[in-house]
Amino acid sequence: MTRRARFALLLVPPIFVDALLLQLLTTATEAGTLVDRLISLGVGLVAALILHGIVPTARDQARQPGFWPLVAVGLVLNYGVFAALASRAPHVQPLVHLGFSWACTLIFGGFGLYRIRRWRN
């Protein structure tokens, strides 16, 4: 399996799980958008970790230094962008904020992976 295919397989399902669960939580509960987002982000992270254990990895990709700190900062950035947007524009649907926060996180992660690979080589 190529790096890009594995990356897409590890990324797309957790984002869909995150979006679906956020939509369910915001319509079914009265906990608040930020709490619902925190729960959906946690479930999406658990889904990503489960997929990470299931999807086969090439030997040279098994241990990439700097990847997990990048993921941690990306998750904090994701929640921070969502919280800022939700507090500044509460009249906008939460899925719009979710989409924008994931877009920012993916851009940040793409540049971060590029810098990690460039630094290693």
Rank of each mutant, 00 (worst) to 15 (best):
M1D: 09
T2Q: 10
R3E: 07
R3L: 15
R3W: 11
R4G: 02
R4V: 12
R4F: 15
R4W: 14
R4I: 11
A5T: 11
A8F: 13
L10M: 10
L10V: 14
L11M: 05
P13V: 09
P13Q: 03
P14M: 06
P14D: 04
I15T: 09
I15L: 10
V17R: 08
D18Q: 11
A19C: 04
L21G: 00
L21P: 03
L22C: 01
L22T: 12
L25F: 09
A28T: 11
T29A: 07
T29W: 14
E30H: 14
A31F: 15
T33V: 13
T33R: 15
R37N: 14
L38T: 12
L38D: 01
I39C: 06
L41Y: 02
L41T: 04
L41S: 09
G42H: 03
V43Q: 00
G44N: 01
G44I: 07
G44A: 15
L45F: 15
V46F: 06
V46A: 08
A47Q: 06
A48I: 04
L49M: 13
L51H: 05
H52M: 05
I54A: 15
V55P: 00
P56A: 11
T57A: 10
R59L: 13
D60W: 12
D60T: 13
Q61W: 14
Q61A: 15
Q61S: 15
A62K: 08
A62C: 04
A62M: 13
R63E: 14
Q64P: 04
Q64H: 02
Q64T: 13
P65D: 12
G66M: 10
G66N: 08
W68A: 08
W68G: 01
P69I: 01
P69E: 00
P69Q: 01
P69R: 05
L70H: 08
V71A: 10
A72M: 02
A72H: 07
V73N: 00
G74Q: 08
G74F: 11
L75M: 11
G80R: 06
G80D: 04
A83Q: 07
A84E: 08
L85Q: 00
R88Y: 13
R88C: 13
A89K: 06
P90I: 15
P90C: 13
H91Q: 14
H91D: 11
H91T: 08
H91Y: 06
V92A: 10
Q93F: 10
Q93G: 09
V96H: 12
V96C: 06
L98E: 02
G99N: 10
F100H: 03
C104Y: 01
C104E: 03
T105A: 12
L106C: 04
L106T: 06
F108A: 02
G110F: 15
G110C: 08
G110Q: 02
G110A: 09
F111T: 02
G112K: 04
G112Y: 03
L113W: 06
L113Q: 11
R115Q: 07
R118G: 03
R120Q: 14
